[in-house]
Computed example of a mutant assay.
Amino acid sequence: MSNTQLSTNQIAAYNKDGYIVIKGFCSRPEAEKLYQTALQDDAMKKNALDLNDQTGKKTKLSLWFTPGDNVFGYLTRSEKMVTSVASLLDSTAPVCHFHSKLMQKEPKVGGAWEWHQDYGYWYKNQFMFPDQLISVMIALTPANRANGGLQVIKGSHKLGRVNHGFSGEQVGADMVMVENALKTMELVYCELEPGDALIFHSNLLHRSEANLSDHPRWSIISCYSSQSNLAYSENSTSWKTPVKIVPDNAILEWETSDAAAVDFLVKENDPALKETGWENKVKTV
């Protein structure tokens, strides 16, 4: 079994706070290999999506569904990732990979992500059970207040799903509820070093500010679901396919294939970015 199994205290902290930070989850050599591959991979560049925040600043992401036989797929499918996720999802069903995304916040120009819950997006995919959805962020560069690192509202996953509307090209949470949550719960800046992991619940309220620093802020976020969690409006198939686990050493030691072989998201096909009508009734600013 993986030597990175979560402790009883870590599982309890996740259930109480909606997130945990694991320092050194990936080694520095692993984080460096992931970062250098991200910088050099033509498929990641070609399939990067621009999403404008409220001010018009762009944040870039490349999103794919089925994890391949490349270094990103090996991370997603690694025993330490899947074992950790399995201990936190509210299900004994096999762990499936919904999607992963390479987040790219360039110096000075990288846009903000507005307050939101991931389930605010994934509700439109008609996933049934938010407690069976989870995200794992791996920092590839330092993430801090200066370069737009992630902020979370501690314990906000217990609010349930908050209404979401459009905020620029993003989906943002109802700011009335966000402001009330900030009066009630603690705002936490999750500052990470390369290789650190932030694991968080699909209903945790989180945001990040624009990167106005001289340094990039890159990360990979892998999102998982239990096979028992049905998605009635999702055309991809990885969300219902159990992950084919690989040993942790695959990240550094196994041969890799071209990332171009994976199934990237096309912006126009994302149900979360399509209007349903009720978004216009939600205050997001």
Rank of each mutant, 00 (worst) to 15 (best):
A86N: 06
N9I: 15
D214Y: 08
N70A: 12
E209T: 15
G56S: 05
K108Q: 10
G148M: 12
D248K: 01
H99V: 06
L88N: 01
Y224V: 01
L102P: 04
W278S: 13
L150W: 00
S27Q: 06
G120Y: 01
Q117G: 09
S91P: 05
S233I: 09
R217T: 05
N280V: 12
F264M: 00
W115Y: 10
I134Y: 03
Y121K: 15
Y19G: 03
L6I: 13
S238I: 05
K45R: 15
H206Q: 04
R145A: 12
V178G: 00
R207Y: 14
Q10R: 07
A43I: 05
L159A: 08
Q227S: 10
D248M: 03
Y189H: 10
M44K: 10
I20A: 04
L187M: 09
S156G: 09
D263P: 11
L133R: 06
D174Y: 08
L89W: 06
K16Y: 13
P216T: 11
N52L: 14
F200G: 02
M185G: 07
E209C: 04
F25E: 12
T83S: 13
A31R: 01
S78P: 00
H201W: 09
G24E: 00
M103P: 02
L265N: 13
A13M: 06
S257N: 15
L102V: 10
H215L: 14
Y35T: 07
S219E: 09
A210Y: 02
L150Y: 01
S213T: 04
E268H: 08
S62Q: 02
A181M: 05
A12K: 15
I199L: 08
D118F: 03
W239R: 09
V266N: 12
K101Q: 14
Q5E: 14
